[in-house]
Nucleic acid binder design. Structure first.
Lengths: 320, 320
DNA sequence: ACTAACTACGTAACCAGTTACGTAAACAGT
DNA sequence: ACTGTTTACGTAACTGGTTACGTAGTTAGT
């Protein structure tokens, strides 16, 4: 019946557009039938000026989230029809000021009860929703920006293109695990090893796997180019550590890919949170973590168990 | 900063559009940078034909949710560029069939990993959301249709225009409550009164208010034209009953308005559910109830306490 | 079998947005 | 004071959609 539904996530854009269109056209009909003889496309600009006072073109375009030529053309039309007045800006000779005519003020008064009714109705729909749409949109927009959508996708693709595969532990990768991590420690921390480091690098199968943790590797062709460890901790949480990418394979998004896989894993296990410790010098790693929604907090136990760590980050997985 | 946020619900339409636009343009960039040299606007039609086989113009326009001239123009362009082939329909000389060229099939194969990556990324955002956007949209669309948005708004406005106000109980409305309900009983049920009816109509202040219930009235000018009672029941639920609208004031949406007010009230009281009993002959009332999301169920106690009722409806308020 | 209604599609005119580009004013750094 | 850069705005060309309307072909009802 409705092909759009089948595409699911991929069609999010179209779904949004369609919903927006039906909403708009319903509203247009309502204006019409309540005798408000005004092009619905005028309302955004009218209300903007009504609430915020006279506006310049660029200013209005930013507020409304459209391009300035769009506002410019719209304003022209509205001026011709007597809703707006354009006056020069008192100080800036480039700029102009759009203000409302009496006619416009009257229309706005007339429209106010309609807006109230619209708002009430939408509010009522939202009250009935298990997941209020507006909140969902806000959240999505925030996450979308935070994630840097485009780069994430491109990096994922890049990994695929380069035949980089994320794989699980296998005994023959033991040496690679140590190699990658020693390399990392040498580069950033002069190769200083704690007692725990020794344990985890020499017998990862005991330190991680045997205690309910996981080890992930990235394989390019036949070479292991990156590693990451998940350690199961109390209160149903996991620690992420030992994330190391071969210097020659950096910048390809392997780290992101590895982290994504790990996070999907812990999500699948219904863990409550994931946390990690890192050093503030490692800005690229920190960026990556923030990208995935990790937030910097005080260390819950006051101080870290790693001498090299000075930051604690965590990601809450359980939904409120 | 961003004016759109302030408008809240009223700007839902614009918010949706904007989000959709940014999504689309991000995707366009991704296609671009992965070397898929294809206008992103071609994809809906390509994938449609790819998945569903050759399509006629009208058929495709329905599937994609756009007008047929839009598909017609798009198809022309795509044929000129060698992506589509238009052949006459074997049986219907009016119709034509759009099918994919080899070139198009190749492009689709090329694009598949990109779609997978996109989908994964969006999926990941949604996994991080407390309220998945797609679910919220689906739910909203369903409720929106169910509610008959336009009429609801117009009726609300109508009530305001006619100076109809919803008010609470006051002792002087006691007679009106009885009058409206007796009238209703006479019209539909030959004025048969049970013991409970007598009580509730003669001493509503004891029967409803004193036991934690509510009474609402609609006043037009100085006349009471409708009434509705909420009775507090066990398990934090309310019964709606005694909904009666003056015959001369019917069709103005007063019933809807009254019910809306009552539902907002019980929502505010954090009740778990609202239920009511009615008779299957009262189709208009039942429509109204369905409109607000009431669903017909078996009577939980097997049979009704009203001799005149043969339907039980309820609305669950608590969110899952 | 014929006619009225409907259907598939094309074309035209329009609309609301966009990007690209140009101009004049304002600003900031030497 | 001058010069390069930024800013406010307008204009032009384009895009992806719309509605309105016309035409040929199909269908259904008498």
């Amino acid at each position: 019946m409705d092909y759009m539904h089948q595409l699911g996530n991929l069609s999010l854009g179209s779904r949004l557009k369609r919903l927006s269109d039906t909403l708009m056209s319903e509203v247009a009909h309502i204006y019409n039938e309540t005798g408000i003889s005004l092009n619905p496309s005028y309302f955004p600009l009218l209300t903007l000026i009504h609430h915020q006072g006279p506006q310049g073109i660029t200013q209005a375009s930013e507020m409304l989230g459209v391009s300035h030529p769009a506002v410019s053309k719209l304003a022209d039309k509205m001026i011709r029809e007597g809703y707006l007045i354009k006056s020069p800006h008192p100080k800036d000779k480039r700029a102009s000021q759009l203000s409302l005519s009496d006619k416009a003020e009257q229309i706005i008064e007339q429209a106010k009860p309609v807006w109230a009714a619209l708002q009430q109705q939408i509010h009522f729909i939202e009250a009935r929703q298990k997941m209020p749409l507006l909140d969902a949109i806000n959240e999505f927009e925030k996450l979308f920006q935070q994630q840097n959508f485009k780069n994430s996708v491109l990096q994922t693709l890049n990994c695929k293109a380069q035949n980089i595969e994320i794989i699980n532990w296998a005994p023959q990768y033991k040496d690679d695990f140590k190699r990658l991590n020693m390399n990392w420690l040498n580069t950033y921390f002069n190769g200083e090893l704690t007692e725990t480091d020794q344990q985890s690098l020499n017998t990862p199968e005991d330190f991680y796997l045997a205690r309910g943790g996981y080890l992930f590797f990235a394989r390019q062709a036949d070479k292991i180019v990156a590693a990451l460890a998940l350690r199961l901790c109390e209160n149903n949480s996991f620690e992420i550590s030992k994330m190391a990418v071969d210097p020659q394979a950096q910048g390809l998004g392997i780290g992101r890919h590895l982290l994504l896989t790990a996070l999907n894993k812990v999500r699948g296990l219904h863990a409550d949170k994931v946390w990690l410790e890192t050093n503030s010098r490692l800005t690229r790693a920190i960026n990556l973590y923030s990208n995935f929604g990790f937030t910097t907090l005080e260390h819950p136990e006051g101080k870290s168990s790693y001498p090299r760590a000075d930051m604690y980050m965590e990601l809450q997985l359980t939904k409120a």
